[in-house]
């Protein structure tokens, strides 16, 4: 134990990260999440295929039109965050306004989804009313959960940005997660609502 390491050469260490670690970590996480949604969607597709009519008899249709408008808010929020990213690279403080816009649009999306759910519950679509309701609340609910977490993360990021403490790695990781929430939504909308 008293021996030591071999004498190392002096010139040290030019470690070049491929990308910020936070981004790589978040990307891996997002891939796992994508597989989770692949699982949900394939389970839903298989179950739906066994029914003659969908939605099952006695169950309300989903509000595809209203949700389409709401989806635009989510997509707009993604675009706003994209411009926030460009602004952040130029001058971090100039990203404040697009980031706030992205945050508000995201929060609006989550809030509107909540209002819509209250109406659907009133129409008799509950978790246990049928597989239609069960899958709707499972898939859209898990997306809403992700969106809520992402909105919280954005708020925290905005708070850090205002205080001038937001690092680039953290900003990029938040961006990756928010893009995931935005980009997975159209697929869920097409599969579940239409």
């Amino acid at each position: 134990m008293s021996e030591n390491v071999l004498p190392f050469p002096r010139r040290l260490p030019a470690r070049r990260p491929i990308a910020p670690s936070a981004v790589i970590g978040m990307l891996i996480f997002v891939v796992t999440e994508l597989m989770l949604y692949a699982g949900f969607i394939s389970a839903f597709t298989i179950t739906k295929a066994a029914y003659n009519t969908w939605p099952p008899i006695g169950q309300p249709r989903l509000p595809a039109g209203e949700t389409l408008v709401n989806s635009l808010a989510l997509l707009g929020s993604g675009v706003a965050l994209f411009f926030a990213g460009r602004a952040f690279r130029r001058e971090p403080q100039s990203a404040k306004r697009p980031m706030l816009l992205a945050l508000l649009l995201g929060a609006y999306f989550v809030g509107f989804q909540g209002v819509e759910w209250m109406r659907l519950l009133g129409q008799g679509l509950t978790f246990t009313s049928s597989n239609h309701g069960a899958f709707f609340y499972l898939i859209i609910g898990s997306h809403a959960l992700h969106a809520s977490v992402a909105v919280l993360a954005l708020s925290y990021g905005y708070f850090r940005l205002v205080r001038g403490k937001l690092t680039q790695g953290a900003f990029l990781a938040t961006q990756v997660f928010w893009y995931f929430v935005v980009c997975v939504w159209p697929f869920l909308y097409v599969r579940v609502y239409l």
Binding site: M35, A38, G39, T47, N131, S142
Partner: peptide, 29 residues
Amino acid sequence: VGPLVAGAVMLVFDQTIGTGFFDPVRGGD
């Protein structure tokens, strides 16, 4: 692991809330 987590969530709901994801009587598989 994603699809299994999806399945596990569905299984827990079947066990606790009483959904029918895997219950053939209620249209599950």
